[in-house]
Design a protein around this nucleic acid. Structure first.
Lengths: 212, 212
DNA sequence: CACTGGATAGAGCGTTCGTTCTAGTCCGGT
DNA sequence: ACCGGACTAGAACGAACGCTCTATCCAGTG
């Protein structure tokens, strides 16, 4: 089933995404470009060119046009970060240690991209808040997903549900703001300090010393 | 000196900014519009229309075009927030209490604007990071100014310079991220929780009980 | 009065935008 | 052999973009 689309493309339109379906290639390219340039700064034609797709394909897969494409891009960025978050939370038993490791990883990624690849959701959603409710909704859902993962980890570590709920909010807010600050100031410092301070904050909350 | 420009404009182009110089009116309008719509989402012609200026005036005052205008808009937003920050920090002796009050005020403002007026610097700077170094530099300077004010307040409260430096980073990061999260989720909660948690974090640092 | 320079005014430049449209290509099913 | 749906291909549309250009207005100066 699913005939895919491997008819030509012999000249490698987009490194690393060569044998993906056209739709998937479009979404990934859109997500990456909007992450760097924002919604208004990214044109449909730029996406189609860099994805190795044509305008016809763009509107075939996304009849809702640019807005539908942006929603798909945000969902893609959401899922991508969910994977990262899940992995780093699973690798460390202590929530604080996991978050510190996450800030290190985020800082490294940001520096590696020369400070252009920030949060894929933020850049796309900012500036489109008014007049594009579905884009905003997709961004809000992404934040909620991430909060939920942090919440579960904190509860698992023995915090009360009330404390965990509130802290999950601040953990995500601070990570988001620190990534932003790191990007703007072109420095890893905001992210690394956020990791240290979030750990310190978490440590002020009571939890059973052992739980079995 | 300075002939200003009051030749006509009898029909009030922009409420509340009527008797300002044309240049000032342009900067304020640009700052407000870019805060809501981002850099790419805001057109020169929209700014000129809403500011009650003409295209000729735009390029007369800002020969560097849109980029120079964006830098001026960011500096304006920077100065505006410096005033707010200075006022709230001066009104409360305790840094934590001041920051909590600030989050309340930010949340109120955000709700009052129906969640569209976020950080004036962030929205303008995001998405223009690559290829517009002066815009990015202006944004970085703004962040530095705000950090400096928080730093001074923390030192004044008795924290060590090292602790104050690190905490100032996280305070600004968290405020920034919480405002972003509040805007995206259309809720005051991220900001208010950030205030509570930042206070709690500050309270974990040693400081002389009295200093007089 | 004429002259000057800061400021205003807006038509118009070339380009790009998001979108629509028609035509064409591929391929499994029959 | 042929059909029909999935997909590709890109010309073309009106609108908007950032910006340049010339013309005009007005206060100040001689």
């Amino acid at each position: 089933m699913k005939t895919k689309a491997q008819q030509h493309e012999s000249i490698a339109p987009n490194a690393g995404t060569r044998q993906l379906g056209t739709r998937e290639r479009i979404v990934r390219t859109a997500s990456r470009l909007m992450q760097r340039q924002g919604y208004d700064g990214t044109g449909i034609k730029q996406i189609s060119t860099e994805a190795g797709a044509t305008l016809g394909s763009m509107y075939h897969f996304f009849p809702g046009g640019k807005q539908e494409l942006a929603v798909a891009a945000i969902r893609h960025g959401d899922a991508e970060f969910v994977d990262i978050l899940r992995a780093v939370l699973a690798a460390e038993p202590d929530p604080g240690a996991a978050i510190r490791e996450l800030t290190r990883s985020l800082a490294e990624g940001l520096r590696a991209s020369d400070w252009v690849d920030g949060c894929p959701v933020t850049a796309t959603a900012l500036g489109t808040a008014a007049g594009a409710p579905d884009i905003q909704a997709a961004a809000a859902e992404a934040f909620a997903h991430w909060r939920e993962l942090v919440f579960a980890k904190l509860v698992e570590a023995g915090l009360t549900e009330a404390d965990a709920h509130d802290l999950a909010h601040t953990v995500i807010s601070t990570l988001e703001g620190a990534e932003l600050a790191a990007q703007v100031t072109r420095s890893e410092q905001p992210l690394l300090l956020a990791g240290v301070h979030l750990t310190r904050l978490l440590d002020t909350y009571p939890r059973p010393s052992a739980r079995g």
